[in-house]
């Protein structure tokens, strides 16, 4: 056994003992902290924009984490599948909060402007479409839905995560005034995580991991 696989096995052992339920709340802490800072006047001259962008960024980070689960399982063999539902739902909560700030604090219920934005502005279109794609996934992120829909249909539905991820980085890239390093880095990471899914399965490294995961779960992506 190589040093790396020993390390991975130890990591997997430790991960098995981490309870998932508290993490649903822990994952919301950065957003709540940003909201507190905005209220406390700690976010500078434009707290609304800082809060709006902060929530959007956390949504994107959790999206990347969600989409990293499969590649991490396939190559180093790190098993994070238990946490994926938590990660994915966290994306949804952050996107929902981000959208709420946009409607309530940024546009201030100026529905005409919002409607015009949705029709005219590519980055708003991307963001809104990503949100629409996340809704059915969030609704079906529970065991009952998996049973009702059946594994195949459920998995197909949750492939919406790929276009949603692409739309989220486009939303970010499109809204900045020039090509800055931040959005480009997020876009590159997204491209990497989605691109890894195109690698044919035969070339995958650790057979043991693959067989185990294939046997047990419905969600190893093949796209």
């Amino acid at each position: 056994m190589s040093a790396i696989s020993k390390l991975v096995d130890r990591l997997n052992g430790a991960l098995k003992r981490v309870p998932v339920l508290p993490l649903y709340f822990v994952a919301l802490v950065p957003g709540l902290w940003t909201f507190y800072q905005a209220l406390a006047g700690q976010l500078g001259a434009d707290p609304m924009r800082a809060l709006e962008q902060g929530l959007g960024l956390w949504a994107l980070r959790f999206m990347l984490a969600t989409l990293a689960v499969t590649p991490l399982m396939r190559w180093p063999g790190i098993r994070l599948l238990r946490f994926r539902r938590m990660l994915g739902l966290t994306v949804f909560w952050y996107v929902l909060a981000h959208l709420t700030v946009y409607i309530v604090l940024d546009q201030q219920f100026y529905w005409l402007a919002i409607a015009r934005d949705i029709l005219k502005r590519p980055y708003i279109i991307f963001g809104m479409t990503a949100f629409v794609a996340l809704v059915p996934m969030a609704i079906t992120s529970n065991d009952l839905s998996v049973r009702r829909l059946g594994a195949m249909a459920w998995r197909n539905l949750h492939r919406l995560a790929y276009p949603a991820g692409v739309l989220m980085v486009l939303h970010y890239l499109w809204l900045v005034k020039s090509w800055t390093a931040g959005p480009l880095a997020y876009a590159a990471l997204m491209a990497l995580l989605l691109g890894l899914r195109l690698v044919p399965r035969g070339s995958s490294g650790r057979r043991r991991t693959r067989e185990k995961s294939n046997a047990r779960n419905v969600s190893t992506a093949r796209a």
């Binding site: 209220l39 001259a45 609304m48 604090l105 201030q108 402007a113 934005d117 502005r121 499109w174």
Partner: peptide, 22 residues
């Protein structure tokens, strides 16, 4: 005349805090 990516019809004054009115 809107910016191609956003409206220029309104603006948000800086300094009004989280609830600054457009």
């Amino acid at each position: 005349v809107d910016h191609p990516r956003w409206s220029q019809a309104t603006e948000r004054p800086i300094g009004g805090g989280l609830l600054s009115q457009r």
